[in-house]
Design a protein around this nucleic acid. Structure first.
Lengths: 344, 344
DNA sequence: TTGTAGGCGTTATCAG
DNA sequence: CTGATAACGCCTACAA
């Protein structure tokens, strides 16, 4: 009758006793630099551990070693393909580095995001990755920076994914440049009069993409701005408003992200306005469904998975003082598809 | 010059010293049953904690209290909308219960899944939720059961999401019934000759859905089986094979999940075979994109988010001995859309 | 109400 | 190579 039957997980003590060695030896045999323990004893210990179904208590290890093997990830919404792709990249890179990822969902509220980062600090993760656009004007910015800075001076690594506006390592997506390139490509395809479906300007990502598009247009085209939510529902709703208003003066719609664009396409279609034929539609992010939607959606490709992996790399590559505010810029590229066949 | 500047996170000792009280008092003021500490001291401590940017070391707490506030989630692929929806549900429910969720990606390999569960045990989470279909014939089944059982006797809670074939609490999806209902609905719409795009039979979910569909058909229809992968790429590829073979004798295609169905639709469309008009297409899961794809995809709705939330509820509702092999059955419902307009 | 001391499961140091 | 033993950061009787 071992300790297991008592309803408690077996500890290193149990294993040591079972193997007839000291805890120290057991510890060394299972985790420590395995070379310094007699082969026979090592086998004994491993066998005992096996028999008991022993798994080292990670929290205990963390506290003894003074460090964890955890990376904390903060996303706005896991169900959104944008974030889940990034999460997949983080998970894979973490796995390769032998790290465990803990995930928290902020749900678009800066306050919750702040609270999350705060409690995350309690985990003493090696790395904290925060993905999702900063929101201007939220009173939480300074508090967030402070929290993250404290974490970093305590030896943690911080990496942000989106745009570079906090003094930490960042994986940036060229929102401005990508949108500008898209605008030029659409001009090249013959479009001149646009509507831009964007989220409130406080959302940096939306603002940058919007601004980039306008700058890409230069003086060569016009752009009607329609503000809405940063989600599929937002895109749908904005398109409906556009329809009510009348589309006579718009040839193409640029939604600042793909899910919005896809929502808009559905709204247009329902109203009998065929995307691609009656109106051009373009998005941003190049999520997987762009090619399964009809017509296939023109977009700006962002290597989302890679963004997650890059963030991990950036975090792990620090030179030790945790003060690397390095930046990894992700390449973006315009992908023209049937949703913007070009005019004439 | 406090300890923070040394590059280490402040500890309760630091806070206590700063506040001029003992660690015990500081502990009580910050975490313990706050009532038994003089208000003035409590304020002092909180102020000190604040000043120092103190966050309790969760690992230390875990080891001292003998339990964590963590729930571990195992998924096959976060980027897959099926899993990310479930993950979103889990995250939300966990958040409401004040729990932290750690996520591991198994990538469809039973070996990796087993390894993950093993190391997850080391975290001593309160709950382990494993989602994703069981794979028959993998030699890992017994080992997985053993691992999970050991975890449970040590006080952990186990919940599976998918089908009930391991002796643990389970949130089940009525794959068989849902597919049968779908088959009947399609028969009702006038379809008789089907092709079923399914994954290898070792994958329980696929097999159940396939079998359910056949049973729903009864003798009233025929079904050509096409085996492929359980992913969008699999659906695409299977559809291409179907096209090469000739579609003259199939009126509708049932893919055992939506991403496969969507891949198939794209393949058909590329070949000039219009889904909905030239061939019916149906899927299973009712992921978000079913309504954004053209034609909208007929599917079997599964409350995915709810599945995640239910799993948390089931885990937390145990009566204490962790031996509740309860089952929560999720309702499924057929949703007919334009991809199966009906014949004639 | 407060402080002292012991313990949680591991690792690391330091003698044997 | 091995075994005591002291940390690690926190909680919690127990005593004051």
């Amino acid at each position: 009758m071992t300790a297991m039957d008592e309803g408690a997980a077996p500890t290193l003590h149990d294993v040591a006793r079972e193997a007839g060695v000291s805890v120290a030896t057991a510890s060394r045999a299972l985790n420590g630099s395995s070379r310094n323990v007699r082969a026979e004893n090592a086998d004994r210990v491993r066998a005992a551990a096996d028999r008991l179904g022993y798994e080292p208590h990670l929290s205990a290890q963390a506290i003894a070693k003074g460090s964890t093997r955890t990376v904390a990830l903060v996303v706005r919404d896991v169900a959104d393909p944008y974030f889940s792709s990034i999460a997949a990249g983080v998970a894979q890179a973490a796995e390769e580095a032998g790290l465990i990822v803990t995930m928290a969902v902020a749900g678009g509220s800066p306050e919750r995001e702040l609270a999350i980062v705060r409690t995350l600090r309690g985990q003493r993760p090696r790395v904290i990755i925060v993905t999702g656009s900063r929101i201007d004007g939220a009173g939480t910015r300074d508090a967030l920076v402070e929290e993250l800075a404290a974490y970093r001076t305590a030896g943690g690594r911080v990496v942000l994914i989106s745009q570079r506006d906090l003094p930490f390592g960042t994986v940036t997506i060229d929102n401005h440049g990508g949108s500008a390139a898209l605008a030029r490509a659409l001009l090249g395809a013959g479009y001149r009069r646009f509507a831009v479906l964007h989220a409130p300007a406080a959302l940096r990502t939306s603002r940058d993409r919007h601004a980039g598009f306008l700058s890409g247009l230069g003086g060569a085209g016009s752009a009607l701005a329609v503000e809405t939510g940063f989600t599929r529902a937002g895109g749908y709703e904005a398109a409906r408003r556009l329809l009510e208003r009348g589309l006579s003066d718009v040839e193409a719609v640029f939604a600042v992200n793909d899910v919005m664009a896809i929502g808009a396409m559905t709204a247009f279609r329902e109203a009998g306005v065929l995307p691609g034929r009656d109106i051009g539609v373009a998005g941003f992010d190049d999520i997987a469904s762009t090619v399964d939607v009809v017509p296939a959606l023109t977009s700006v490709a962002v290597p989302l998975r890679e963004a997650g992996a890059s963030a991990m790399r950036l975090a792990l590559s620090g030179d030790g003082d945790g003060d690397t505010d390095a930046e990894t810029r992700l390449p973006v590229s315009v992908v023209l598809r049937e949703s913007t066949p070009g005019r004439r």
